[in-house]
């Protein structure tokens, strides 16, 4: 494939996703990778694959999102670095204009976004609690010896879902073990877990916010049909899972990069595919300038510092590279 497009990169705790869209916003390419604790490596790997599949495509703009958005933004030379809430909302509304509720459950956090006429009017995000997130589901699947992609399918086979306390991941796990030792069927336990996590989401994240249709369910956990069904049962409404539910954050980032093009007079600050062959490294140092002992993160490309952050004061601001000033 040749031509041009906009790149969106979502660096999350569990997965790193890359999306390439054309200037009409149509998805051309998507890459879903495991971050595995190495965001720089994941971004490089993703770009390598993109270069392999898309050849020498011209990148007109780059947007990054997710908890690793700054790091990815610096490495790639992003034109737009956006938080995941905005990115997910933009993508959901692009995919389904008029969407009123977005449920997003990712690896480490879950969010609810309420939109009216295409504009976010309210949102909430839960990061302090692991219950209900992808990591917890994965961990339980591993404990039960079930591949995560069969989790949803099994949940749908349940006939009598058991009641599991979903308030807290630790309680949920001990409750599950208890139920399993009592002799309940594994499908019933898994289905019960999905229902518990949905209740947990509604109590701890949505907290009474008006969940009105159309409701879009995205993020890695949307792959789990058991979760989708549990939401439908609890909310008594249809839940829509977008085709590219797993890369919606990256799609949003790409759309935002496309939108930001005008503001930049058509110029992109993308460093280019070749820049990925350079050596990127992060180095942490503890500043001893005051008792605050800020942990300064120093990002370097080859031997040149290209960005620094983590300081509370302005002492470390100057890196000599103007590019990292956006953030």
């Amino acid at each position: 494939m040749a031509g041009s497009g906009y790149l969106g990169v979502d660096v999350g705790s569990v997965s790193t996703n890359l999306v390439l869209i054309d200037d009409k916003g149509v998805l051309q390419e998507k890459i879903y990778l495991r971050t595995q604790g190495d965001p720089i490596g994941a971004v490089k790997e993703g770009m390598k694959r993109l270069r392999a599949t898309s050849g020498n495509i011209e990148i007109l703009g780059v947007g990054t999102s997710g908890s690793g958005r700054r790091l990815a933004g610096v490495i790639l030379g992003a034109d737009c670095i956006k938080n995941e809430i905005t990115a997910h909302a933009v993508a959901a509304n692009y995919w389904m204009p008029g969407v009123r509720t977005v449920i997003e459950i990712g690896g480490q956090d879950s969010k609810i976004i309420i939109l009216r006429q295409g504009t976010v009017i309210d949102f909430a995000m839960n990061t302090v609690c692991a219950a209900g997130t992808g990591s917890f589901l994965e961990q339980q699947a591993a404990r039960l010896g079930i591949p995560i992609d069969r989790f949803g399918e099994l949940a749908l086979m349940a006939q009598n879902p058991v009641r599991i306390a979903g308030r807290c991941a630790v309680f949920a796990e001990s409750d599950m073990i208890h139920k399993q030792q009592m002799g309940h069927k594994i499908e019933d336990i898994i289905s019960g877990l999905c229902e518990a996590l949905v209740r947990n989401y509604l109590n701890n994240v949505a907290k009474g916010k008006p969940i009105e249709p159309p409701v879009v369910f995205q993020g890695g956990v949307a792959a789990n049909a058991g979760m989708k069904t549990a939401f439908e049962k609890e909310l008594d409404t249809q839940i829509i899972v977008p085709e590219h539910y797993d890369v919606m954050g990256a799609l949003g980032a790409a759309l935002l990069a496309c939108e930001a093009k005008e503001r930049r007079n058509g110029q992109s600050s993308f460093r280019g595919f070749d820049a990925l062959d350079r050596h990127y490294a992060t180095r942490t140092l503890e500043c001893t300038g005051c008792p605050n002992h800020c942990e300064i993160v120093n990002i370097s490309m080859d031997d040149k510092t290209i960005a620094r952050w983590g300081a509370r004061c302005t002492r470390w601001d100057n890196t000599g590279d103007e590019r990292n000033c956006l953030s």
């Binding site: 908890s67 956006k82 938080n83 995941e84 809430i85 905005t86 006429q117 295409g118 504009t119 976010v120 009017i121 309210d122 949102f123 995000m125 990061t127």
Partner: peptide, 21 residues
């Protein structure tokens, strides 16, 4: 401060977008 920053950014985006509209 990442979590706080993400929420602040999203809140400001939300307001700026509806103001624009």
């Amino acid at each position: 401060d990442t979590g706080v920053l993400t929420r602040l950014e999203a809140f400001v985006d939300m307001i700026a977008m509806s103001k624009c509209r």
